[in-house]
């Protein structure tokens, strides 16, 4: 890492990573998550669901001419990483993923038993 890099190595042993901005929207059928992962090709995107933890990781891979020297850089780390905790009413086994133009769209449906049900109120 060069001296003028504003990013310092983290002491936790984990590599420095960018936190991708996300939108999370919920409706009756489930949750939709959008994440901005610009510069990540499809084969360098890694999604993992383990127990109730969803991990989104991606490696930026840009086509760069040989001998390029940076004069201004706002994206100085080449890795994205973000972790979410899923709640138990979500069905992690049926997560749908689409990835296009650097935008990841994840659809996480609600488990069958957690679908909304109208509660009838009996008047006695």
């Amino acid at each position: 890492m060069s001296d003028n890099s504003p990013v310092t190595k983290q002491t936790t042993g984990e590599e420095a990573a960018l936190l991708p901005p996300v939108d999370v929207i919920e409706n009756a059928s489930g949750i939709t998550l959008y994440a901005d992962l610009a510069g990540v090709p499809k084969d360098k995107l890694h999604l993992q669901v383990e127990a109730d933890t969803l991990t989104i990781e991606g490696e930026i891979d840009l086509e760069m001419p040989e001998g390029i020297e940076a004069s201004h850089s706002e994206v100085s780390v080449s890795r994205y990483r973000r972790v979410f905790t899923l709640s138990k009413e979500l069905d992690a086994t049926r997560v749908g993923a689409e990835f296009k133009n650097g935008v990841l769209k994840l659809s996480i449906p609600k488990a069958e038993h957690a679908q909304p049900r109208k509660v009838e109120i009996k008047v006695v």
């Binding site: 610009a38 760069m64 001419p65 020297e69 201004h72 994206v75």
Partner: peptide, 12 residues
């Protein structure tokens, strides 16, 4: 977000 770099032949 923008990154700017250069080589003797080009500005990227």
């Amino acid at each position: 977000a923008m990154n700017v770099g250069g080589t003797p032949q080009s500005v990227d």
